Amino acid sequence: MSQYRTFTAADAVEYARQFGGVDNPDSLVDSLEVGDGNLNLVFKIFDTQGVSRIIVKQALPYVRCVGESWPLTLDRARLEAETLIEHGKFCPEHTVKILHYDADLAVMVMEDLSDHAIWRGELVKGKNYPLAATQLGGYLAQTLFHTSDFFQHPYQKKKDVIRFTNPELCDITEELFFNEPYEQHDRNAYPRELERLAEALRDDEELKVAVAGLKHRFFSNAEALLHGDIHSGSIFVAEGRLKVIDAEFGFYGPIGFDIGTAIGNLLISYCAAPGLLVPREAADAREQRLNDVRDTWNSFAEGFLALAAEKSTDRALATPGYAREFLGKVWSDTIGYCGTELIRRTVGMSQVADIKNIDDRAMQVECVRQAITLGRSLILLANHVPDIDALIMRIRQNG
Rank of each mutant, 00 (worst) to 15 (best):
M1P: 15
S2V: 14
Y4V: 05
R5T: 15
F7Q: 09
T8L: 08
A16M: 07
A16H: 13
G20C: 10
L28C: 04
G35I: 13
D47V: 12
Q49W: 11
S52H: 09
E68V: 13
T73F: 14
A77L: 08
R78L: 09
L79P: 02
T83L: 00
G88K: 06
E93H: 11
H94W: 10
L99N: 07
A103R: 09
D104M: 13
D104F: 05
A106M: 07
A106I: 06
A106R: 04
V109R: 03
L113P: 15
S114F: 06
I118M: 15
W119C: 03
K127C: 14
L131H: 08
L131D: 13
L131I: 14
Y139A: 05
Q142H: 09
F145V: 05
F150Q: 00
P154F: 00
K159C: 12
R163F: 07
F164G: 03
T165S: 15
P167Y: 04
E168A: 13
D171S: 14
E174R: 11
F177P: 09
N188D: 02
N188S: 07
P191H: 04
P191Q: 09
E193P: 10
E195F: 11
D204T: 12
E206N: 15
L207C: 07
K208Y: 10
L214Q: 03
R217T: 01
R217L: 04
A224C: 12
H227I: 04
H227D: 11
S232L: 04
S234Y: 04
F236N: 03
V237G: 05
I245P: 03
D246A: 01
F249G: 01
G250M: 05
F251I: 06
G253E: 01
G256N: 02
D258K: 05
G260L: 03
G264K: 09
G264H: 01
L266W: 01
L267A: 10
I268F: 08
Y270L: 01
C271A: 11
A272E: 00
L277A: 10
L277D: 11
P279H: 06
A282G: 12
A285Y: 01
R286D: 07
L290R: 00
N291H: 15
R294H: 12
N298S: 06
F300M: 10
A306Q: 10
E310V: 07
E310D: 11
T313S: 12
T313D: 08
D314T: 13
Y322D: 04
A323N: 10
F326N: 06
S332D: 02
Y337W: 12
C338K: 05
E341S: 06
I343K: 03
T346H: 11
N357Y: 12
D360C: 12
S377Y: 08
L378R: 06
V385L: 03
P386N: 04
P386I: 02
I388V: 01
I395A: 00
R396P: 03
R396L: 08
